[in-house]
Amino acid sequence: MYHRLTLIGCAAVAALVFGGAASAMAQQWGDLEMDFVLGDAFKAEKIVPDKDVAFCGKHPLFRENVVVDPATKGVKNVAVYLLATPGKKVAVHPDYEKTAKDEVLLDNKDCRYEPHVLALRTSNTLVLGNSDPIGHNMKAEFFNNPPFNDLIPAGGKVKKTLKAAESAFVPVQCSIHGWMGSYVLIKDDPYVGISDEKGHLVIKNLPVGEHTFIVWQENTGYISKPVKVNGKATTWARGRMKVTIKPGANKIGKVELTPEALKLK
């Protein structure tokens, strides 16, 4: 009984403290949503493995520099992330605390890296895994973090803490199997969205107000050639898109990428 009372007491104090803080700040949050599609027809290039053919040859492999869903024309793995202003800390929604210390897996699976584009926070741990029965290696060169190049044994894993934020996506590559690679972004804040198979992208719970986002795609880097946003020609100089986030949903709509914007021609 005594314990329960103490607990209730504590909870009440906590509610007072946090509730008070929240109402004082009155921070409001909004979600950013976008859909990326490619206007033109696209066919992914097939990869014929030249190493570990017995194992890798069993899996259909395609170049993943541009991934388009044939049905919806959605472009996968386009990333949009909040541009960090030096010296300025961005408000982070409490929901993100749950995942702040998570391990984020970059796996070697069926002779490709999974996921192909990933983002993590400086508070997360990157786990380099290998679910394949063959050995792989993972090599990355960062701007602000020490590089790594580790051999990941079959069934093994290696953990990496990357303490410094990077301003751009950094490639991770396998030196043994040249086609294998991923892109990783390390940020202090959690505000990154990566488009799914259908080209849909969402960044949840951004602090309201005007923000600059970077729009990035592996094949072209910053998307800086004209694109059509809901049919209207738009250019994001150096991939920078300014959006004023309002409370609730902020739907940018359909972004039609041209082959030129993706450097396909």
């Binding site: 190049n149 990941i152 030196s175």
Partner: peptide, 23 residues
């Protein structure tokens, strides 16, 4: 350690106290 600047990777060492870990 591997060889920096080249594809030669560092060996993964077996962590102490985990006989099942690969390395």
């Amino acid at each position: 350690n591997g060889i920096e600047g080249t594809p030669m990777p560092a060996a993964t060492m077996k962590p102490d106290g985990d006989p099942n870990a690969k390395g």
